[in-house]
Amino acid sequence: MRPCGVFDKSYALDIAIIRTWQHWAILISALLVLYLFPLFGSYYLVSFINLLSISIIVVLGLQIVSGLCGQISFGQAAFMAVGAYTSSILTIRYGVSFWLALPLSGIMAGAVGIIGGAPSLRIKGMYLAMATIAIHFVVIWLILHMQITGSFKGLYPMPPTIGGFEFDSDERMFYIIVTVMIIMTYGARNLMRSKVGRAFVAIRDNDLAGEVMGVNLYYNKLLAFFISCFYAGVAGSLWAHLITVVNTEQFTLLHALEYVGMLIIGGMGSIPGVFFGVLFIRILNELVMFASPALAKAVPWLGSSPAASLGLIAFGLAMAVFLVFEPRGLAHRWEIFKSSYRLYPFAH
């Protein structure tokens, strides 16, 4: 977002994330409002933002592997489950503190992700998407059939503490989750303008050409999977300690499909797109939740609780509409708006 007449005079300025003092002002005031939000926002909104932030972290990871590197992954829910279970097991069974378990669960999910991403060395596109679906089911099956994960009963991790202060409510967890989300967003945005990010984009656009130009395909594909699953694992850990119940019902294939849908609607290859996509789907879900009791009353055929299935229908339709009419997602609209703002008040 730059007004008309601001020009980049150096490369450093050109790739800078924050370019003008107005940007700094907007950023700092937005952060202030966000961090003070639990003081005046309602409980409902605070927990909604918690959910949004966790989804944003997961979809950021997906953006890196699918949007930047071009490897479609339907395994994100399973990798999130790996993170959630790792964190719970470490804190419950081994007494590791949450602050150490958080990055460890990310690394664990990343390690599983490297194994899961191994097929990407030989296959791509739709075949890889199917392979990740297979990995999803294998991971969930393993979780259900191991002793340490509590099998079908699941696990009950405790809320994190720091020096006797317990983060045991949504308002308190808000600070941890939002802080992690901001750090992860910065990390993803920074990755995009690094050498690794450019290598990912080269693989996405044409992997053979990229390889000829000296991009190590194997290393970079596995790295993309590692980073993506690291994000999912961290999100899983936060999720586990937020709701303090972990079972495999929370990480089904439908959840994985939902994350891919958020990515499509937001727009592939763009960090703001992640925010748009997650917001769009979550708000759509909430709207359906609000509307469905009234709908159920008006149309008795729908039964007593149509919210879940109506949500699926709305989600599928939204995705179909975006694929047909705006395949580049909401991020593309945002780009159009930005470029017209930059030209204002001139036409060209």
Binding site: I72, M126, S309, G316, V324, P327
Partner: peptide, 23 residues
Amino acid sequence: QPLLAAFLMTFAIFISLEGVFVL
């Protein structure tokens, strides 16, 4: 369009029809 878009479209259809089926 790219074939991946069509693949993703079939999965959007899968989800919508799943909703109808469950409903």
